[in-house]
Amino acid sequence: MSKKEKKEKKEKKDKLDKLDEKFDEFFIENSIYLTRVPDSYKNREVYKPLNEKVLKAFIPGTIREMQVNVGDIVAHGDVLMILDAMKMNNEVKSMISGKIISILVKEGDMVKKNQIIAEFE
């Protein structure tokens, strides 16, 4: 079979495949569209508002120099611990003023990005 014939055969098959396809429903401004919705869109991160009472690691790294304990009352901007990441000692500061009700890491722990490290009342 020549290159051209092969191509035409593939084109014909593509055409038939498209006729059989079942499409997803996709809503925009109250209208429904039938279309393919790629997995990358279906699996996209759904927005969640920021919960200030939960402190998360903003970067992966290692916890050093824990400077607070459970029960401490801290002010907005107080340094809570050092997070060793990207060859830097990063100060982890409190985002709010309030009482710490739990600390989920200890010195030397490796943390992942967005891992919860402390919770506030």
Partner: peptide, 8 residues
């Protein structure tokens, strides 16, 4: 491309 995400 209307075939994908309605072509948005």
């Amino acid at each position: 491309q209307p075939l994908v995400l309605a072509g948005v």
